[in-house]
Design a protein around this nucleic acid. Sequence first.
DNA 1: GATTTTTTTACGGAAAACCGTAAACGGAAT
DNA 2: ATTCCGTTTACGGTTTTCCGTAAAAAAATC
Lengths: 222, 222
Amino acid sequence: MFKKVLIAEDLDSISQTIIHTLEELSITNIQQVKYCDDAYIKIKKAQTENEPFDLLITDLSFKQDHRKNKLINGEELIAAVKSFQPSIKTIVFSIEDKSFKIKSLFNNLEINAYVIKGRNSIEELKKAINSIYNNETGILLPKTTNTLTEKSIIEIEPYDISLLTLLSKGLMVNEIATEFKNSTIIPNSNSSIEKRINKLKIYFKANNNVHLIAMAKDMGLI
Amino acid sequence: MFKKVLIAEDLDSISQTIIHTLEELSITNIQQVKYCDDAYIKIKKAQTENEPFDLLITDLSFKQDHRKNKLINGEELIAAVKSFQPSIKTIVFSIEDKSFKIKSLFNNLEINAYVIKGRNSIEELKKAINSIYNNETGILLPKTTNTLTEKSIIEIEPYDISLLTLLSKGLMVNEIATEFKNSTIIPNSNSSIEKRINKLKIYFKANNNVHLIAMAKDMGLI
DNA sequence: GATTTTTTTACGGAAAACCGTAAACGGAAT
DNA sequence: ATTCCGTTTACGGTTTTCCGTAAAAAAATC
């Protein structure tokens, strides 16, 4: 079994349970931090001392408070850690259940497992740890019905996200066009942007821009 | 100390910690449920058997799954429970930190304490339990700066919420007007609705309707 | 009950979204 | 080079939002 595990989780009400679970799996060296920055430092230090962590279990969203942190969420943490220790195993333990977001974690950060916090997540977490230790990479997806189908996930590109984000910030089509031109993002004409927005509206069955943004917010797209 | 306590919390990773905390406070009869409906049934049953619960500790948001539930969140649960057992003490334990929402819980549901899930929430939860047992009603607010000021909270009325909700569903001003007329909500003229939306936009410094709805979503208003 | 004040409604012009059509552009294939 | 095809851009007309002003109605004050 894993020898040295780090837990990055801000809510004490959750981290305590994870620790308890790891103890049940006879893991002896369990460390825990409440901030991503602390996690980064600990993993870095452990590696330089030739006693690296085997496994990182991290949440995605961390509350912001008085402390100024460089790494503000689990995604940034994983990316930062893998930059110097790509071999580390990672489990994301989060309440986020939007499959397109989970997918992106496997694709972009190459995490080893994703466990959704829920009514029986402890068991799933145990399974995930065992699977990874036996070198199986598995996606633990929820059984809940998702509004987005497998197919539809693929078609939402970063371009759409930027577009929706700018829209949600109150920019007009005109302003978005100049914004895209400044960032050399194409297409960037008023017409194309209008067309793309329209496509998204048809796609999500939204009545108008307001509706579209409300739905995007609900789905966690932006 | 309290004799009989019920925990309503869907995430097992959190409920385990709460149970552990209550045990430390020498509370012997601790029961736990993962659905609001189950909480309601348990409390109801306990009362009819003349062994009522002293305290309810509940989350606000519960994940939805295959089960069809009548009560879908903590607010509904508390309202339902207080309808037949108004004397029960209630603590809300949630990650929600928008002060206007917390305020409304104290005002409308007369909860006894609100503990925000965070990096030291276990300690706060203990304090809250002790305080309530000693008949002190206290608001445990976070130290984080809130975008909404105390004054601004008051002025957001249910009317505004309905308005924002309908907007976010993609209805046009015209349609909202007829909707309001059907529900005999006043004011319900196009002009008045436009004016009210404009007021909200000035208030929240939103550029347009899209921006306004995005902000309302972010703040948890809708 | 008359007057003042506030709220609600009505209206109108300018700006932006909405939506279809057509032209211009840029690769890929031949 | 030319054709083909998909993408991007341009344009124009309609609808809705946006925003100010004024009238009408309701509420408050005297």
